[in-house]
């Protein structure tokens, strides 16, 4: 599975068991980062439509607050949208976000297309989550309706599955 998108076949969301295409995107004007930095540990990819969601329950702000739980699994988190790095920087400062927000800006939505989560009609990423294992394989994925914040419970359950922590030994609870 190359992850590339054929012109004639409608793109489908990458599923558990498929190889996640590696990529690097800018997270700052002079810096790029991506999936390869997470080899050997789980990675959470959170595609989202746009910076500046107008509610307290913003998905990226929530993930920042949940970061100590992700860190218990030694998991890295990347937020990805088609916004440019300057928007990301202002958004991250406003919401206190310290994990990388990547700009899938040029060519627009190229990485989202590879993962099958680009919304051609609106020209933005779908609200989609992927948990990758330490070898870069998709362990779990989920696409939420764009207006609904999917929360973090699905991610944590997927990380439980990866690390073999059963529900009786979940962190904290």
């Amino acid at each position: 599975m190359s992850g590339s998108v054929s012109q004639s076949v409608p793109p489908t969301v990458l599923q558990a068991g498929q190889r996640a295409p590696d990529f690097e995107l800018p997270d700052a004007p002079d810096h790029r980062t991506g999936t390869t930095q997470f080899r050997g540990r789980p990675a959470v990819l959170a595609f989202y439509p746009a910076d500046w969601s107008p509610v307290c329950g913003d998905q990226m702000a929530l993930y920042q607050a949940v970061m100590p739980e992700f860190e218990r699994y030694n998991a890295g988190v990347l937020g990805i949208s088609v916004d440019n790095v300057w928007s990301h920087r202002a958004f991250a400062e406003d919401r206190g976000i310290t994990f990388p927000l990547l700009a899938d800006f040029e060519p627009k939505g190229e990485v989202a297309r590879q993962y099958g989560v680009y919304d051609e009609q609106s020209g933005v990423c779908q609200r989609a989550l992927f948990v990758l294992d330490g070898e870069g394989m998709v362990a779990w994925s989920q696409v939420a309706p764009s207006g609904i914040n999917p929360g973090a419970d699905g991610i944590l359950n997927a990380l439980d599955g990866l690390t073999g922590i059963d529900s009786g030994r979940r962190p904290v609870l």
Binding site: G57, E69, I148, D153, P171, L173
Partner: peptide, 18 residues
């Protein structure tokens, strides 16, 4: 406080109030 928070995350709390 953290115990409440993590229990909420595990239950699908995605913002406040839920």
């Amino acid at each position: 406080v953290r115990r409440d928070f993590v229990g909420g995350v595990r239950s699908g709390v995605n913002g406040t109030p839920t």
